[in-house]
């Protein structure tokens, strides 16, 4: 069978589908001071997943927490990678209490594209990954 670390090189998705892969990728991002991008990506997925079984109040609290931590501060690594229109859409949703499971989808896509085009290829060439293999 293909060893996991070879699968990680197939796509960002295969990497993020493996606990050890996530762990190593996060270590790399931490070194590059952009681990927040990965945390944000998972927070968006988690937010969407929780919708079915969580009450509205919890969803609102969570949406606010994600907004405050990753988007509000314009100098944050995540905030800098998200388009202004996407940020104001999310801000509007939070301010008007329009909480929707898909409200972070666009922002998540933008961060994912950024990782696919930038940090993921760098990770595959990094010492952290090469030493692991």
């Amino acid at each position: 069978p293909t060893p996991p670390y070879l699968k990680w090189a197939e796509s960002l998705h295969s990497l993020l589908d493996d606990q050890d892969g996530i762990h190593l990728f996060r270590n790399f991002l931490k070194q590059e001071e952009c681990a927040d991008m990965l945390d944000f990506w998972f927070a968006c997925s988690g937010f969407r997943k929780q919708e079915a079984n969580e009450g509205n109040e919890k969803m609102l609290k969570l949406a606010k927490a994600i907004y405050k931590k990753y988007i509000l501060d314009n100098n944050g690594i995540v905030s800098r990678q998200i388009k202004p229109a996407t940020k104001s859409f999310i801000k509007d949703c939070v301010m008007k209490l329009h909480i929707d499971p898909a409200m972070f989808d666009q922002a998540q896509t933008e961060i994912q594209t950024m990782m696919e085009e930038n940090t993921y290829p760098l990770f595959l060439k990094s010492d952290i990954y090469l030493e692991y293999t």
Binding site: Q19, F42, A43, G46, F47, K49, Q50, K61, A65, I66
Partner: peptide
Amino acid sequence: IDSEDDLLQECISSAMPKKK
């Protein structure tokens, strides 16, 4: 503040793949 961080952490963990 703590509970907000906990909520966020719980949300992030819920999206991670489970150990195989």
